[in-house]
Design a protein around this nucleic acid. Sequence first.
RNA 1: GGACAGGUGGCAGAGUGGUCGAAUGCGGCAGUCUCGAAAACUGUUGUGCAUGCAAAUGCACCGGGGGUUCGAAUCCCUCCCUGUCCGCCA
Length: 430
Amino acid sequence: MHDIKFLRANADLVKQHLANKNIQDGVALVDEVLQLDEQRRNALFEVEQLKKQRNEASQQVAKLKKSGEDATQIIEETRHLGDRIGALDADAREVDAVLATRLLEIPNVHAPDVPIGAVEDDNVEVRKWGEIPQFSFEPKPHWEIGENLRIIDFERGAKISGSRFYVLRGAGARLERALITLMLDVHTQQHGYEEILPPFLVRPEAMTGAGVLPKFGEDAYHVERDDLWLIPTAEVPVTALHNEEILDVAQLPIKYAAYSACFRSEAGAAGRDTRGLIRVHQFNKVELVKFVAPEYSYDELEKLTRDAEVILEMLELPYRTVEHCTGDLGFKATKAYDVEVWLPAQNTYREISSCSNFEAFQARRSGIRYRPLDENGKAGKPEFVHTLNGSGLAIGRTMAAILENFQQSDGTVRIPAALRPYLGGLESIS
RNA sequence: GGACAGGUGGCAGAGUGGUCGAAUGCGGCAGUCUCGAAAACUGUUGUGCAUGCAAAUGCACCGGGGGUUCGAAUCCCUCCCUGUCCGCCA
């Protein structure tokens, strides 16, 4: 969410950035909000004048009654005032509600150094790591490997829950659990994150604060009866951890690593990645979330991205890191990197982590603040923190990458050395 | 799910219709005292919004929302949360 004052003062800049982000109705959205804002301020000014009159009249009544005098005349006169205030207040509230919703729907601006571009192809590769494996045979896609080894059961997943669901069994289930544990261990023991295990169902406020609602409700699952949402990522509950709090500046940066199951309806994704573990309704992920002082947020983004990359290096998986161009940045981020792992059977890199700086976009929605220190070390007025997050990593896609990259001609899969301690020393799945 | 009891400033805790944004205590900040510190004493100490260049002024906020009233922290409705007991349950 934008600061309305910033929007008022920088409407043209915001419009330009939305155009850079390839947002079609950006100009109209900004103009509508500015108009609503003016309406709201006019209504507010009028109603506040009337309230002032009413407050003064009420104090008169109090004085008269105290001295035992008759106040019926003032009470009579003020009664109409109350009706008008009520009506104007209702108008102002209505405008305010529309304004708040519209404001929540305006995408974030982008950082000045983000490459301008329209689509994914304009993203810029910033790093590449690892050797792309050469096979003496035609590498199989991970879903075939998984089914042959009887560690992934897509058919029964569909029987139980429908398409885009799967069942892990035996070594597959254990591998999934090992990956979760390894990632949490590395992030907590080597990268300084605190481990969080959050609720998987959250209130609408948490979804709104993180930026999923009101615009992207279609992509998530909603439990009607209790008005709770299944989290599409641990980002939602972990970001909400500090909603409406003023954080102690000495604690910043706050860094959390959270495992959760993630639930996505994948509405509008029909026909895309229909096979395998790449695009499913329920998957596991270890998510990294940071709350930082604004001046450090871009440094922290670089570190966060590195924290994700390190996991792939430990697992010996080749990857590249690309920076999103403006057109691919999405709704919330001012700057973002995707870490993409090599998938041999698809002969391409696929996103396995997306690391973003949101600046104050989420913090403003969620009321997450801190008191910056002045040059004398004294605490000042509360200001919004910057929030960042990134996958560290998506577990299902990591499993897919392991199966495809380390498959052998005999159909077995080699387990990378770093993972073996988490699998009781297992060196390959056969 | 049922029955009670609660939710007030950073914390503790008064306040049951009229200068209550809110007593008091603790904490924080500044000052006095001191070589320095502690103690003591004095002062100060919330957030958001609007108008304004500013100083300032106004409005709102006592869990959220709505209502009654000239006037609500205080009364009513509703939702949420916490505690206790009962029921159910991993």
